[in-house]
Amino acid sequence: MAEDLVLDTAIRDWVLIPLSIVMVLIGVLRYFVSKLMRSTQVPDGKIVKEGQVIVRARNLRAAANFIPPKSFRARRAYFSNEENGLLHVPKGQAQNPQAQMFSDPNMAMDMMKKNLSMIIPQTLTFAWVNFFFSGFVAAKIPFPLTQRFRSMLQNGIDLSTVDVSYVSSRSWYFLNLFGLRGLFSLILGEDNATDDAQRMMQMSGFGFDPTKNLGAEKDGLDIVQHEWALPKFEQRAEAVLRKLVS
């Protein structure tokens, strides 16, 4: 670091600090705006019921080994017998998923709103940063990097002689964009952090078919090999009780 640049303190006061604060505030604002715009869907009773049945069946499958074989068989019959089992779907009653998707325009609307609330503030902030703060050397990372990072960290400065560890204001914006995620998850709670994952889930669940889920769960339940995990628990209980009595 022989040729240290001397940076004006005004850059710190009027570029670095305001930029970082604005990034944080915009993140908070985005969170609340997307919270306000989220429409509350009235869930369909039938779908909720089917979902609950699936959850119960899944619980049974997960905890199958903790109940005696007889109890397990009885429960399985309750869920999946061919006449009136809860998971049994009569033929022809299956709803066309496509039709269901079109009957609920709210779903597509909701997704679009969410996407917009991500994209619009980002574009606006980027334009704002470009307009006001282009061309400043705003920061310096405290560790050396190779030349390869020059295009990443000195976006907007066309000088090849400046040390790579100096960061231009536009690149500081990008660093903030990625690095502040942790801070947001602390100050806004977890919904913000899991936002992306949730959106992915919604994408894949778009136009999903509950009856198909019922069928899949039924198949899963049918092939469970029951193996009781607690064959000796009666003896153990007896031993414990005897110890208590004596």
């Binding site: 405290p142 960061v167 903030n176 990625f178 690095g179 502040l180 995620r181 942790g182 801070l183």
Partner: peptide, 8 residues
């Protein structure tokens, strides 16, 4: 990532 950002 958070560490590097706040360190810088």
């Amino acid at each position: 990532m958070s560490f590097v950002l706040f360190w810088t």
